[in-house]
């Protein structure tokens, strides 16, 4: 398989107004093969957008380089950019123009024109199912419709590679499903390579051939989903949502010592939502256990005897969330 994207020691440092610096991306190395959907998964602020911005030529790397189809994004940026389409997290469209006018403008910027451009715009409007609204201004569209035009604008030049930066943010489940299906279609029917960033584990699991998990500007794990979940073994994850309540350390010791199959326990205490508020986010107790369903009754009994009020219980089989939790000690949504 041919390498479509390769990054070497990609690093980005920003200066703060007080003179200090912050390292947003700390030496990322990636290799993405042609025709695969590769996801960058990580919480907000992990460095996903900065990484994708460097690879797409929006942000100059402080150090390192990336190649697209063999062209360096820093030294041969024009050649590299011709191979890629870009779908940013924001709706990067002119709200005063119609869907057709937006697509026609960005098409002209790729050097397209005349009938070829008209045909391509028609195809894409059909592809994102907005042919009937093509002459309406973007600012009259719903969030989901805007997202679809945003995706279409990234596909105008029929690129072999497309970057999608959290393309489902802020849209309803129906439109989200449509976007995810579109992404799969790009790979399956158009043999495109897709670099997809998300903070939603479910999306990464559904779409990706391979996943890189990012946290604090670093890639902490990378591989297929099977390869990643194997890193946390065969343990199930039992998640107990608890009210604004602390739990004594002795309770954890009892669960871990006396319940068969329990390997470790993580406790995220209740969190005050703001300084002046008496409202707390619920605490989350996560118990890792082999054969989690078997261990569940005994754990419930221990918690009940300790006076812990349980609001909900979920039993999760090994997934990317578990990998992230195992590697960072935090949930993806934290």
């Amino acid at each position: 398989m041919q390498t479509m994207v390769e990054t070497r020691n990609l690093r980005k440092t920003y200066s703060r107004p007080d003179g200090s610096t912050i390292e947003a991306v700390k030496g990322v190395n990636l290799e993405i093969q042609q025709g695969e959907i590769f996801s960058l998964l990580g919480p907000n602020g992990a460095g996903k957008t900065t990484t994708i911005s460097m690879i797409s030529g929006l942000v100059e790397p402080t150090e390192g380089d990336a190649t697209i189809g063999g062209f360096s994004i820093t030294k041969q940026s024009m050649e590299a950019k011709r191979l890629m389409g870009f779908v940013p997290q924001e709706i990067a469209l002119y709200p005063e123009l119609s869907a057709r006018q937006n697509l026609a403008f960005f098409g002209r910027m790729y050097g397209m024109g005349g009938k070829a451009l008209r045909r391509r715009v028609d195809e894409l409007l059909e592809f994102v199912d907005l042919a009937d609204r093509q002459n309406d201004r973007i600012d009259t569209f719903s969030g989901g419709m805007k997202r679809r035009v945003n995706i279409a604008a990234g596909l105008l030049n029929s690129p072999p590679l497309v970057y999608m930066d959290e393309p489902t943010v802020g849209i309803d489940p129906q439109n989200r499903r449509r976007v995810l299906d579109t992404v799969k279609l790009l790979r399956d029917e158009h043999n495109m390579t897709v670099l997809y960033t998300t903070h939603l584990m479910e999306e990464a699991q559904e779409l990706s051939d391979r996943v890189a998990i990012m946290d604090h500007g670093e890639i902490i794990a990378m591989g297929t989903q099977d390869e990643l979940t194997q890193q946390v073994g065969e343990e199930d994850r039992l998640e107990f949502t608890i009210g604004a309540q602390e739990i004594a350390e002795a309770v954890f010791e009892r669960i871990q010592g006396e319940t068969p199959g329990v390997t470790r326990i993580l406790f995220n205490p209740p969190e005050q939502l703001d300084e002046d508020s008496s409202v707390f986010a619920p605490a989350l107790l996560t118990v890792f256990a082999k054969r989690g369903r078997t261990a569940l009754p005994q754990i419930l009994q221990e918690l009940d005897s300790a006076g812990v009020e349980i609001q909900s219980v979920a039993v999760r089989e090994p997934d990317l969330e578990a990998v992230f939790l195992a590697l960072t000690g935090r949930a993806l949504r934290d």
């Binding site: 929006l58 024009m78 940013p88 924001e90 709706i91 990067a92 469209l93 910027m109």
Partner: peptide, 14 residues
């Protein structure tokens, strides 16, 4: 803010 400037930068123009 609306990222149209950034989208232009992702196009093959200087």
């Amino acid at each position: 803010r609306q990222w149209t400037l950034q989208r232009l930068m992702a196009l093959p123009i200087t």
